[in-house]
Amino acid sequence: MYTLTVKYHFDAAHALRSYEGECRNLHGHTWDVEVTVGGETLDDRDILYDFKDLKTDLTEVLAEFDHRYLNEVPPFDRLSPTAENLARIIFEKVTVRVEEATGGRVQVLEVAVWESPVARVVFSRA
């Protein structure tokens, strides 16, 4: 299997719902997000999926969240804006774009969300 990964970032604030610690208060992060896709076959250019296209997919999804208060952005207006939920939502949104562009030949394998240089969560295809 071929895999490729792109990374981008965005800045946003959030406040965790039902959380006992300091993170229940409004605070912000520079979120780093990595998306890894994979597939068995290359296209007619001998490319799995163009890095440029995957970066565009990711940056357009992240634009919804950039410089925003996540608690006010759907679906986080009703869903706690944890790193775990953010990873899953980004995974779902990028998956639609990649699978549509490749006819299902390429799949999103995982999304890693870093809320700091030393803390990340990964949502992956089971």
Rank of each mutant, 00 (worst) to 15 (best):
Met1Trp: 00
Tyr2Thr: 09
Thr3Pro: 02
Thr3Val: 13
Thr5Ala: 12
Thr5Gln: 15
Val6Leu: 06
His9Thr: 15
Asp11Leu: 03
Ala12Asn: 05
Ala15Pro: 00
Leu16Ala: 04
Leu16Gln: 07
Arg17Gly: 07
Ser18Ala: 14
Ser18Lys: 15
Glu22Asp: 15
Glu22Asn: 10
Cys23His: 07
Arg24His: 12
Arg24Asn: 05
His29Ile: 08
His29Asn: 06
Trp31Ile: 13
Trp31Val: 10
Thr36Ala: 04
Gly39Gln: 06
Asp43Met: 08
Arg45Val: 00
Ile47Ala: 10
Leu48Met: 08
Leu48Arg: 05
Asp50Thr: 07
Phe51Cys: 10
Asp53Leu: 11
Leu54His: 02
Asp57Val: 10
Thr59Met: 14
Glu60Lys: 09
Leu62Phe: 02
Glu64Trp: 13
Asp66Lys: 07
Asp66Cys: 05
Asp66Gln: 08
Leu70Ala: 01
Asn71Gly: 06
Glu72His: 07
Pro74Gln: 14
Pro74Tyr: 02
Pro74Trp: 14
Pro75Trp: 05
Leu79Phe: 08
Leu79Asp: 02
Ser80Asp: 12
Asn85Glu: 06
Leu86Ile: 10
Glu92Phe: 04
Lys93Cys: 06
Val94Ser: 01
Val94Asn: 01
Thr95Ile: 02
Thr95His: 07
Glu99His: 03
Glu99Lys: 12
Glu100His: 11
Ala101Gln: 06
Ala101Trp: 00
Gly104Ala: 12
Arg105Thr: 03
Gln107Ser: 14
Leu109Gln: 12
Ser116Pro: 02
Ser116Trp: 06
Pro117Met: 05
Pro117Gln: 07
Ala119Gly: 01
Arg120Ala: 11
Val122Met: 04
Val122Tyr: 00
Arg125Glu: 13
